[in-house]
Design a protein around this nucleic acid. Structure first.
Lengths: 261, 261
DNA sequence: GTTCGTTTTGTTCATTCGAACATTTCCAGG
DNA sequence: CCTGGAAATGTTCGAATGAACAAAACGAAC
C-alpha cells in the first residue's frame, strides 16, 4: 500500500465507493492504512464536492441523482481546473455574451461564473446550462439535438449551425490535447466541430487547458493554438510551445493554484 | 405552534433552511417544539429526498448544486406525485418512445423510468433529460431554445416544430389545472403549446394530475380531458368530471399512495 | 545538508448521531 | 364511549463525529 498521495487516495476512495455502492469509514481506514480521522477528512471533501453522500458511519453513492454519468470523470487535477476556472471568471465582465463548449473545465468555469450579472450564455453542455440557469438574471440558450448520455452534452451537425447564429463576446472551450506543434486535438470528430464553430463566431477566443494537455495526443485534429486569443492554463507551457504562442500574439494567463478545502 | 402534522413540518423545515441557508438540529427542535430526535428523522428524510444536505449538528443547502431553482417548488403532495409516477412507469414498456413535457410530475416520472430499458425520450424538460440520460441505453433528444431558468425547461415556438417531428408511443404531460368542464388549463401560453404539440403527435396520450388539480383554475385554456387516452391520478375525480371521462372513453388509473420514508 | 513554512496525518475529547425500545397520539370500527 | 392497531414521538445509550492541537512529512530556497 505504501504512501499514496492524498489526492490520489481521494480519487481511489471515490472509485471504491462507486464500485461497491457504499463503504464504512472503518473499512476505508483499513483499506488505505490511515486513521479514521483522515478518511473522514477525505470523505467530507468528496461530499462537499457533491461526489459522495455521507451516512453515519460511512459514505454511499448519491443515489439515483444525476451523478451516475460522472462515473468516468476524473477527479484528478480538479484543483488546477478550478484555478483556471477562477481565472477565466475574472476575465469575463458582467453583461457579456459567452459561448461555452463541452468538457469538464468549461463546466467548472460555469460554476465560477454564476455570481456574475446578466450574462448571455450559449452552450451545448447541459451541465453548464444547468449551473448557469441558477442565476435568474442569465439568459441561457441551448441548441437542440441528441444528448450524449455519458457527458451530458449535445453534439452533431446542428451545433455548427447553432453557434453560427450568434456572434458572442467570448468563446470559451477546452481541448483533448495540444501537440508540440500547437495543433489542437480532440477524441471525436463531433467534439471538434462545436469547438471550431465557437472559434469562428466569437470576438475573443479563450482556450482553457491544464498542463496535462501539453504534448498529449488525441486523434482528431481541429484548429491551432495560433487561432486563439487567450490561453488560460495552470503551468507555463513547454518552451517550444511558448515560443509559438508568443509569435502568434496569444496572451497566456497563468492561474495560481489555491487550496480547495 | 400547537400540533403541526409531520408532513407540513418537514415542508416548513425545508423552507426554513432554504431561507436561512442552514440550521442546527437544536434550533429546529426549539422552533417546532419537538425533540431533537424527531427533527433528525425529518431532516434525514429530506436529505434522502435530496432537498437538503447534512452537516454534523445540523443541515444546510446542497450548495451551488442544481437545487436552487427548486426554490419555488412544492414539497407538498410529493408522496401523491410519486405514487402517480410509479403508476405511469408501470404503463410504459421497455423499448418505447416517450415524449415527456414540463412540470414536476413528469420529472418524477422520469426518475421512475430510469430503470427501464432502451427508451427513446423526447422532452423539453431539462430535469427529465438529466434524469434519463443516466441510463446509458436511453436515447434522449432535446429541442433547442431559451431555457426558463426557474423551471429548467425549454418553451417557445420551436417546441411545436420539435414534437411534430416525431410520432411517439406515449405522450406524457402534466397540467396547471382541470376545471369542472374538463378543460385543461395552464398558467402560460407557451406551456400550452408544448402540451398541444405532444398531444397531437403521440399514439397514446397520458395526462398526469394529482387531485389538487381538479377544479383548480388557471388562465390559459388548451385542450380538453376528452382528448387524452389515459388519466393517471391519486384520487377519484369529482362525479361530474368522472362522468365526462367515462363518456369520452378515457381510462382512469388510480395510483395508490404508499409510505415514502 | 539545513532551515523554515506548508501540508498532511495522528490524537484527544466534548458533542452529536442513530438504533432500539417505550410511550403517546391518532383514527377507524364497533 | 371504548378499543385496537398504526403512525408519530420521546428516551436511552454505545458508537461516530469534527474541532483543536500536536506531530510528522514534504518542498523549496539556500
Amino acid at each position: 500500500m505504501s504512501h499514496i498521495p492524498p489526492e490520489e487516495r481521494r480519487a481511489r476512495i471515490a472509485e471504491e465507493v462507486r464500485r461497491q455502492g457504499a463503504a464504512t469509514i472503518d473499512a476505508l481506514a483499513g483499506r488505505f492504512g490511515v486513521t479514521e480521522q483522515t478518511i473522514r477528512r477525505d470523505v467530507n471533501a468528496l461530499c462537499d464536492a457533491g461526489l459522495l453522500r455521507r451516512r453515519h458511519g460511512g459514505v454511499e453513492l448519491p443515489v439515483q441523482r444525476e451523478n451516475l454519468p460522472y462515473e468516468s470523470r476524473q477527479v484528478l487535477h480538479q484543483a488546477e481546473k478550478q484555478a483556471i476556472a477562477r481565472a477565466v471568471a475574472g476575465l469575463v465582465p458582467d453583461g457579456a455574451s459567452v459561448a461555452l463548449s463541452i468538457g469538464t473545465t468549461p463546466e467548472l468555469i460555469a460554476r465560477a461564473l454564476v455570481e456574475h450579472r446578466d450574462l448571455k450564455i450559449y452552450t451545448n453542455n447541459l451541465n453548464v446550462a444547468l449551473a448557469l440557469c441558477a442565476n435568474p438574471g442569465f439568459e441561457v440558450t441551448l441548441p437542440g439535438g441528441r444528448v450524449r448520455n455519458r457527458y451530458r452534452d449535445l453534439v452533431g451537425a446542428a451545433q455548427t449551425r447553432f453557434f453560427a447564429g450568434y456572434n458572442v463576446d467570448f468563446g470559451i472551450f477546452g481541448v483533448g490535447g495540444i501537440d508540440d506543434d500547437g495543433e489542437l486535438l480532440d477524441f471525436a470528430e463531433e467534439e471538434v466541430e462545436a469547438r471550431q464553430a465557437i472559434l469562428a463566431n466569437c470576438r475573443r477566443a479563450l482556450l482553457v487547458a491544464d498542463h496535462t494537455k501539453f504534448g498529449r495526443n488525441a486523434v482528431v485534429r481541429g484548429g491551432h493554438l495560433a487561432e486563439v486569443d487567450v490561453l488560460v492554463t495552470d503551468r507555463a507551457p513547454p518552451p517550444a510551445m511558448a515560443a509559438r504562442l508568443d509569435a502568434a500574439g496569444v496572451t497566456v494567463h497563468l492561474a495560481p493554484r489555491e487550496a480547495l478545502s
